[in-house]
Nucleic acid binder design. Structure first.
Lengths: 261, 261
DNA sequence: AACCATATTCCCGCTCAATGGTAATCCTGC
DNA sequence: GCAGGATTACCATTGAGCGGGAATATGGTT
């Protein structure tokens, strides 16, 4: 499934090309793209031209290329992210109106938290979450909420790995984390002061889907010194239940045991 | 550049596959995908498997497939849409907080308006704009604003085409439209009562980039019967200028002639 | 203008990955 | 069990993809 000596398929090369673009490299010359992807020059030009033809890439006046509007459109329209996003956004707006700092929605993907939406851009607090950006599971309130409601086998796999300690408050001990996850399930939210950057703390609550499995984590980032951050929890919880319901969640079925330990 | 008898490249088929998904078809079986794309069965399965391997598609428990998180992530992260969106969102939130109905951000693509962001989901009004959805240029306030500030040659091309009349108030006469575009440039906004659906009206203002060319249209959709919809304009304009500035716009350079007639 | 570095396009022969038909197998509901 | 569709397995054919190399365009420097 690869025409190239390197044993890579076109699809693989397509991924390499798209991956070469990120928030700080939204456009570049074809030559630079070739360098960044490591593809042979001629091959790069050939592929790029083909992608330009399909409008998956676009050429700007200067000659540089960037990811095409068509690509964004096709992917956005067909992706399930939009549905989740649309269900969540109204409630996120409400939260944002009250909390005023920064509201995010994250999902679990490839053992990391992937943020798919973010409202508010309060310059006064440190918040490194970016849309389409990733952060480790064990060092974010969103991640811990997602993990807490994931199958036990999955938790085991994550906790078995070496966990980076970002700040003093980052929990890295599996046993401690496990206890903490239990707490999160019981209390219904995760509050993490400065686990990834010391100045801010995150509070996150779970969003469930129709089958009562976790879909996403709704969270707010507030300054760490804020006196009673816990007061934010009810608003968040109400919003999360609203989103869950919009996704088709029926409420907790009585007698149903959770998929955790 | 095509291995298939049909003369289509892999990239072309990739596009066909991704296009098969939309907001009402976010997942389907491979067989159905084959039918929707019109690709030969075997080919469909082979391509899908390759895409699954790269996580551009994902298989769900039932066996159905959908557009992968990785695809959404790669495209979103590398696309210029994110930058525009991030510049716009804070201001859109402000507008939304005041106007309360529905705030959208649209750009010009392939001779249509492509909506890239939308806030508010007021069920009481009719608003057919969807994120990653398209509407014709001549029948939306956003479209007319975008057109009004586009190069004359482009305007000519659009106005030369047959223009669909959606409602009684839809302008389809090129001469009338041209005059209207001039008005829009002069007043700085477009207000269209019921040009596409009779119950609502849209008000739109332009967003400019660093080079003083139009980038997007910021608009609100309000019930048509609202007494003085024009009162919304100042808020919109202020927000649009904010977005423009966030994009690097320096303000109107004195003595610079507009790129219109 | 002459120069140089880099970006881009053009050319071309080799080759194996992609293709898609047919057939076997696996599900799933009746 | 049986029918109908979904999925996988097999395989001969072939032209699209490949990429080195040379030619050309572009742009900045002295």
């Amino acid at each position: 499934m690869a025409n190239s000596p390197s044993g890579e398929s076109i699809i693989g090369r397509f991924v390499r090309i798209v991956s070469a673009f990120d928030d700080s490299h939204t456009s570049m010359s074809v030559a630079e793209l070739g360098r960044r992807t490591g593809l042979p020059v001629t091959t790069t030009y050939r592929l790029v031209n083909e992608l330009l033809l399909e409008r998956l890439l676009e050429r700007e006046p200067g000659g540089d290329i960037h990811i095409g509007t068509r690509m964004w459109e096709l992917v956005s329209r067909g992706s399930k992210m939009l549905g989740l996003r649309e269900a969540a956004l109204p409630f996120m707006e409400d939260v944002q109106a009250v909390v005023q700092h920064s509201t995010t929605l994250g999902i679990l993907d490839s053992d990391e938290v992937l943020y798919i939406e973010r409202l508010g851009s309060d310059k006064t607090i440190v918040d490194i979450t970016k849309i389409a950006g990733r952060l480790p599971v064990h060092a974010t309130s969103s991640g811990l909420v997602l993990l807490a409601h994931s199958p036990a086998a999955y938790q085991d796999r994550i906790l078995a790995r070496p966990l980076t300690k970002f700040t003093e408050t980052t929990l890295t001990d599996p046993a401690l984390l496990r206890r903490h996850l239990a707490e999160i399930r019981q209390r219904g939210f995760a509050a993490m002061p400065g686990v990834i950057v010391p100045e801010s703390s995150g509070i996150a609550v779970p969003v469930f889907g129709p089958d009562n499995t976790i879909r996403a984590a709704l969270s707010v980032v507030v300054p760490r010194n804020e006196e009673n951050a816990a007061a934010r929890v009810p608003v968040l919880m109400a919003a999360a239940r609203g989103i869950s319901r919009a996704l088709g969640w029926q409420g907790e079925l009585k007698g149903t045991l959770r998929q955790s330990h």
